[in-house]
Design a protein around this nucleic acid. Structure first.
Lengths: 113, 113
DNA sequence: GCGGATACCTAGACATGCTTTCTATAAACG
DNA sequence: CGTTTATAGAAAGCATGTCTAGGTATCCGC
């Protein structure tokens, strides 16, 4: 991931972002990246070279299922949707993220103690 | 990193945690891990196999400087402190972290829009 | 004074996962 | 036509954390 946020920080986060983005509706890869970009107010931009491998990983793990469709524009696109396991995984990832960000918050505030 | 939080989420975060922990005072590796554990209320536990490589990396990059001392207990310990560059890096990492967590927050709340 | 727990450090092999870079095709727009 | 926008894939590489294993010294309880 490039763009605004430093890339190594994103490690382990990309899956969460993708899963969450697909929670609302199935989308193809390109649209996923756009949506993440838009929703994060451009703070996060997912480069294609990160996105597609991630999608394939998630598909291989059975967290996403894919289907080829034809776009309104007449182009082929591979639409991904969350599987049941993917949905469960999303819940777990959210919980993990919240714990992590809470923990980091504690440490960043630790000027006091 | 193991313990409470899933490990891959910690990627890119370990440096931040170490730098931040050393902001207040120089510490040896073992004590750094303890402090992170304590300050995060045990949400984050840094295994030695992650900690020491990270310290070496940071030292090689010139973000930390190390010195061998003798502990009160009479043991040898390698005490790390922030260098000037390390301090600057810490500021940058904090800014990055805040941007990232804000961005993820936006995405996680995106049930609305 | 022995055994085990705790404190403390190092090194190397490994896995994962993201980045980079390149490739490819199609529609739309000027 | 050429360029931009959509859309997808793959190969090679690198950074970083994990795991494992090893090594020494102090302390404490028995």
């Amino acid at each position: 991931m490039a763009g605004a946020a430093r890339s190594d920080l994103l490690q382990g986060t990309l899956d969460l972002l993708i899963l969450k983005t697909l929670e609302r509706a199935p989308l193809h890869g390109y649209a996923i990246a756009q949506q993440i970009n838009r929703t994060s107010r451009a703070l996060i931009q997912v480069p294609q070279g990160s996105l597609y491998p991630a999608l394939h990983r998630l598909e291989n793990k059975g967290l996403l299922a894919a289907e080829w469709i034809e776009t309104e524009a007449g182009r082929d696109a591979k639409v991904y949707r969350l599987t049941k396991r993917g949905r469960a995984r999303l819940d777990a990832e959210i919980a993990d993220w919240e714990r992590l960000s809470q923990a980091i918050g504690l440490i960043l505030q630790a000027s006091l103690a």
